[in-house]
Design a protein around this nucleic acid. Sequence first.
DNA 1: ATTAAATTTTAGACAAATCTAAAAATATTT
DNA 2: AAATATTTTTAGATTTGTCTAAAATTTAAT
Lengths: 218, 218
Amino acid sequence: MLTHTEENYLKVIYHLSQTEDEGISTNAIAQKIDTKASSVTDMIKKLKEKKLITHERYQGVFITTLGLQTAKMIIRKHRLWEVFLVNKLNFNWDEVHDVAEELEHIKSEKLINALDAFLGFPKEDPHGDPIPNSKGEIPYREKELLTETKINHKYMCVGVKDTSAAFLQYLDRQKIALGSTFTVLKHENFDHSVTILFQENELTLSKVVAHNLFVKKI
Amino acid sequence: MLTHTEENYLKVIYHLSQTEDEGISTNAIAQKIDTKASSVTDMIKKLKEKKLITHERYQGVFITTLGLQTAKMIIRKHRLWEVFLVNKLNFNWDEVHDVAEELEHIKSEKLINALDAFLGFPKEDPHGDPIPNSKGEIPYREKELLTETKINHKYMCVGVKDTSAAFLQYLDRQKIALGSTFTVLKHENFDHSVTILFQENELTLSKVVAHNLFVKKI
DNA sequence: ATTAAATTTTAGACAAATCTAAAAATATTT
DNA sequence: AAATATTTTTAGATTTGTCTAAAATTTAAT
């Protein structure tokens, strides 16, 4: 049985492992958790003791198969609760993160599977992130960053890389939501901004924005 | 901001205050929380510090207005989540307690009010206990114990005093649920059992059962 | 290849919530 | 009213998760 804190560390290690082949550094974890490296070292010992990660002094952390499976179950819970909040309780997509962060630690397999069924076995959360099924399998969905697109092709917005309230609220103001479609008109070489034709209007999105929007060719 | 543990203590003190005019004893709390009296003494200091209770050495605990309001909000959350589990996720009424015990600590007023609305502002939880509204007002509902009833009158089952899984499962086996109606036929003086006419059959309920069933004359 | 810099770990401390064992206060018996 | 029993509190430890400061190790720079 894991504590909330252990679950939070494991989730961070899982996410860092997604884009890192080497061991995850103590500092990288500390930065994500917003704590001190010494605290991370302490927690690493506990997670290692529970066989969720492997670790050699000064060599970084690797997540084990057990750790991977456990992390995916926490992420499953987080994302299902987010769907619940948005689809059933009418939360906006920028309001769900902190509450889901709490709800993800509720321990009941029956609860989460019943919730999954109640929601109609959704494949993605409100930010377009895939929801692991009860076996931990993560549905694959084609997606690329808006920065990588080809001009004169039509795309649909399918996800966000940055899930901060600030970014989501910016998208709301631009009327961009998951499912929105548009044509890419131009990639500006100078500042890497992207101009799209969206709802009959030309809209220029900065590099920062384009680099955090996942799209799919349609 | 209260910890989970502080909330659990406060809830217990609230419940004990309901049937007790004197100060709540350290031992009474210890027994309910299933901990040692010395741990209770420690926690009393913390709750007193936060102005949720008053306490003089050796004199028992009294809940303050702030404590009362806080406790009612925790109970509101607990009971609303129980309704959610039963009405939306198809949990049986004997399966909800432990999960609701965790869910009640989720901290988001928006969440709980949205949940309340989503559930249609229920007045009672699946065990017939009243749900405080967002202001902390508790709806009154007429009820008496089956042991107090008059013979040859018709009653409806409106609640249970004992909410243990064992008792609820016993009621399931007898096909007794909230809303069930029956006529009281006899009070047996010898063992205080109660015989009712329920669904065309005579059914004798022991004193223990009758003393834990809330009913209402119809 | 040393030296300097950055990272990581250890050592020791603290707050929260718990415990045991002993002391203090209150309640009950005789 | 004194003796006994019960209840409550204190004192001192333990565990979890955190911290600071210092030591150990690795990495980068000259």
